[in-house]
Design a protein around this nucleic acid. Structure first.
Length: 467
DNA sequence: TGAAATGTTGGGGCG
DNA sequence: ACGCCCCAACATTTC
């Protein structure tokens, strides 16, 4: 029982990583492994950029402990079986993943390893409550967020920090060269991402401390204003497991003990972690969430899926300043502010009548925080077909939202340089300005108020069909 | 984690 | 002074 294998997946950290820490405490030798399953992995281009840098960060952290990260490309089961044979591994550790593809993969691997007499120890490394532990009074899964989160609250306590008690020993094992995996996008698109992001554990800690010191106070109000950058931006770090939700919870609870802490802000921020878990929870209990409407009556929805309109949306050339600012922020940084995500998603589904799945695909490809569960659940939420969703008739008006949440137009001006000469309030409706010609900036590709009426008509049809 | 339509109220102008 | 109208301003309803 001397050699343990730690299979890193969506837990690219050493701190508060139960699989890694337990393996270190129980075994003399530890092999840290990351597998790139090119054929079966679902990886957006922005995420691939992140993964590349996160693996470098993880590898550096392991080196400081005297360990080498082993990189392998291919089928996980084959790779693990090969290592077990050549390195005489007695136990395999990992932290659980919760999407349907990973679940079936892991089940199969676990069964095969157990047959071969190898111990498999899986842990919870990313959720306050694992999906199967939370049920409502009927024994069914929650479909509404508020009661779900309220129910989770009773189990939400801060555990003590876990850490390794001795340095494990390293085995010399051949590893792929990360550069050969070609994770970095070929066009120079993602080269600017590093201006905004530092993948890896240290980057995550900086984001957390920065958020707590500068943005937790007033979070509830400020979080809706994209120019204020008041959101935590921890989402990509959480997606890759570079920070444990327990670490975040502990830091917030500590902050709550300080005088003058904005308790409402803290509670609201924690509820955002709740939404993250709720998405994972929904996907676990309804695996079809990735492709199918949660609410079946939406299956009859007459999406139009106009290719040109979709491209205009993707490129940020819709003629609606706030929409375009958001889509360009996404392209430039691999991220979009949450408020703006809701608005562009509402615009795509209810304004352009394009299927939420096409929007979800684009987000999945271009967001550094793209997460199967969160992406699908959130798109369905906006489109109205999801669990506890915004009603279909709740349609965002891109101009009103712009006036409300970017009143001075600073966010728009930051991402849409063509509109720089529009001073003051005129920036929300550039097409109404006769005296200024917006160089190269398009006129609105749709009339929003007409689109709204059309959307509501279809909504009424849905309702009557439903009975 | 909407927006628009519709309803209600109350102050001020004015005959 | 009074009633009437107008119309913000706010509240409620509807999609």
């Amino acid at each position: 029982m001397r050699v343990a294998l730690v299979w890193f997946r969506q837990d690219l950290r050493l701190n508060e990583n139960p699989a890694f820490i337990e393996a270190c405490s129980e075994h003399e030798f530890v092999i840290p492994l990351y597998i790139y399953d090119e054929k079966n992995s679902i990886l957006g281009r922005a995420q691939a950029w992140w993964l590349h840098h996160s693996l470098i960060a993880l590898s550096n952290s392991l080196n400081k402990l005297g360990l080498n990260l082993v990189l392998r490309k291919g089928n996980p089961l084959d790779i693990i079986l090969d290592l077990i044979k050549t390195e005489v591994v007695s136990s395999v550790y990992w932290n659980r993943c919760y999407d349907p593809i990973s679940i079936s993969r892991d089940k199969n691997i676990k069964a095969t390893l157990l047959e071969q007499g190898v111990d498999v120890i899986s842990s919870n490394g990313s959720l306050f409550n694992e999906p199967w532990t939370i049920k409502n009074k009927n024994g069914d899964f929650f479909k509404v967020f508020t009661p779900y989160w309220k129910h989770c609250g009773q189990f939400l306590h801060v555990p003590s920090v876990i850490s390794i008690n001795h340095r494990p020993k390293c085995l010399e094992i051949k590893s792929d060269d990360l550069r050969q995996w070609n994770l970095l996008p070929s066009l120079n698109w993602a080269s600017r991402f590093s201006d905004y992001w530092t993948p890896g554990e240290e980057g995550a800690q900086v984001k957390l401390q920065d958020f707590i010191h500068y943005h937790l106070n007033g979070y509830k109000k400020n979080r809706d204003f994209p120019i204020k950058n008041s959101t935590s931006r921890l989402s990509p770090h959480l997606h890759f497991g570079e920070i444990s939700p327990w670490t975040i919870l502990r830091a917030i609870e500590l902050e709550k003990c300080r005088p003058n802490c904005d308790l409402a802000g803290a509670q609201h921020f924690l509820s955002e972690l709740g939404w993250r878990e709720f998405s994972v929870y929904l996907l676990y209990h309804f695996p079809a969430l990735l492709n199918e409407n949660f609410r079946k009556e939406f299956n009859a929805f007459p999406w139009q899926n106009d290719e040109q309109l979709l491209i205009s949306w993707q490129k940020g050339l819709t003629g609606y300043p706030l929409i375009d600012a958001g889509m360009r922020e996404l392209w430039a940084t691999g991220y979009m502010h949450n408020r703006v995500r809701m608005i562009v998603a509402s615009f795509l589904t209810k304004g352009l009548f394009i299927d939420w799945r096409l929007g979800a695909n684009w987000f999945f490809d271009t967001l550094v925080d793209a997460d199967l569960a969160n992406n699908s659940a959130s798109w369905q939420w906006v489109a109205g077909c999801g669990a506890d969703a915004a009603p279909y008739f709740r349609i965002f008006n891109p101009v009103l939202q712009s006036q409300k949440f970017d009143p001075d137009g600073d966010y728009i001006r930051q991402w849409v340089p063509e509109l720089a000469k529009f001073k003051g309030k005129s920036i929300h409706t550039p097409w109404e300005e006769v005296n200024i010609s917006p160089s190269n900036y398009p006129k609105p590709i749709i009339n929003h108020s007409e689109a709204r009426i059309r959307a509501l008509e279809f909504y009424n049809q849905l309702k009557s069909k439903d009975g």
